[in-house]
Each structure stands twice: as structure tokens, then as C-alpha cells.
Write a protein that binds this DNA or RNA. Sequence first.
DNA 1: GGTTTTAGTTAGCAAGGCTAATGAACTATG
DNA 2: CATAGTTCATTAGCCTTGCTAACTAAAACC
Lengths: 124, 124
Amino acid sequence: MRLTRRLRQERHSELTTNQLSVLGTLRTNGPQTPGAIAAYEHVQPPSMTRTINCLDDAGYVLRAPDPDDGRQIMVTISDKGEEVLAAERARRDQWLAKHFAGLSTAEKKTLRDAVAILERLAAS
Amino acid sequence: MRLTRRLRQERHSELTTNQLSVLGTLRTNGPQTPGAIAAYEHVQPPSMTRTINCLDDAGYVLRAPDPDDGRQIMVTISDKGEEVLAAERARRDQWLAKHFAGLSTAEKKTLRDAVAILERLAAS
DNA sequence: GGTTTTAGTTAGCAAGGCTAATGAACTATG
DNA sequence: CATAGTTCATTAGCCTTGCTAACTAAAACC
């Protein structure tokens, strides 16, 4: 919890950390249905619907009906979404460069390794 | 974000992860003023006031005026708070035992080392 | 003794969790 | 093929928890 809030302090874009996370998922994994995004982000579908609404209203994502299955909807990141994500990434790189400067090579490797392990635990 | 929400799913007590975090801080670091807790948890004082109100109303913490400085207030974990924290810890131990069973000794060491590094980054 | 600073709180706003319920589209079964 | 069940997204309504701005009371400082 402390780490999450520490990172929230670094956000300076117009988007929240949640919204950036969803946008990053769309960029990395490609267009997804709301249900798939919700599962990946570990929230219930209604929570994701609301986040997608915010992103949609502001033009960061696009909704398109699935031609094969009328129940499903594909969510895609828009050009505007790509731009804001790139800007945030640049800012994050600066932050990382500044704070990782004080870490040794071994410490950086420890963090990289830990990320892989935690990704697995989070997905389980 | 994904990891935070993954962990939220494991909560089964009557308290939220935020409230448990504050309670854990009080147990580990002893009685604190609201301002000190807010700084440690990386939130603004009004946010912490509200969380403490919730915990206070439910009897998990106690507020006591500071005899030396009339502006300050000391927040202390109550017996009920200790109990719920112990119960949550037992549940967490079960979860860890289950999910860490699939990790090697080296992987567990990596996670322990990473925690120390991240604590430093969060505090900076 | 009056001004400034500091600590905690109150008020009000927005984001984002959740469950329950709804509606539309797909699937399966008799 | 019709009907019943399932699945997906959404809506509605609740609560917690961030925030800033404003307020009160106590302390500190000319």
C-alpha cells in the first residue's frame, strides 16, 4: 500500500494510475474485451466498465462491436491514448534514472528478477 | 496496480487493506500522531483523519491528547485492533505458505532483498 | 500582545472498488 | 425450432479513499 501511494505522488499527467495501467495493458497486449481487461487487472467487470467510460469520454480509447459475437466489445487504444502514454513513460524514465542511480548493478538485477516472480504470483 | 488489486482479493476480514496497513504501522512503530502516520503512508493528513475515524468508530484504535502539545493527538492500536491484525496475519501466512511453496530458495531470497530495496525507494 | 506557523479536522469533489440487477446475444436441449 | 439457460456488458447504488480549500485551536515567534 505504501509503495502504491508513493508512486501515485509521481503522477503528473491528466490520467490516474488506474487509467494509465489499463492504457498500458491495451498498448502491450492489443485490443481486448472489457471482461478480459477486468480479469487481467483483477477487478470486477463493472469496475472496468466505469474506467473504460472515463477513458472513452476523454478520447483515450475506442469501443467497437465484435462482428462475430454481438455481446462482446473490443476496446482499442486511440492515438491520443498512445501520446499520453508515451509522455508518461518519458516522465517515468526520468524518475527511474534519478532514483536508480543510487542502486548497484546487483540491486537492479534483484528488482528485475523480483518483478518476474511477482508477475507470476499476481497472475496465479 | 495489478499486484495491489491481486492482494485486495485475498482480504477476508472486515477491514480494508488501507485500514490494515495503518493498523500494522501502529503495531510495528508504536503510537503515532495522525500527521506522522499520514507521512509514513504517503497520504495527505485529511485522508488519514478519515481512515482513523473509521478505525476509531469501530474500536480498532484509540485517540489520546498529547499532554505536552495541545495540538497533537496520539493514536494507539486497541486490543480489538491487535486481535483483528493477528487474525489477518494468520490468514496471510496461510496464503504465503501456499503460494511460496512453488518458489525456490533463491527466488524467496530475491523477494526478500527486493522488499528492502523497495522500502528504501518508497521512503525516498 | 499580536502575528505567524503548525496540527488536526471539516467540507466537498472525484475516482474506483464492490454487489445486485438488467438487457441483449449466444448456446444448448427437448 | 422454441424455450431455457448462460454469458457479456452495462446500469444503479453503496462505500472507501484520494485530493484541495477552509477552519479552529494551540504553539511559537517577534
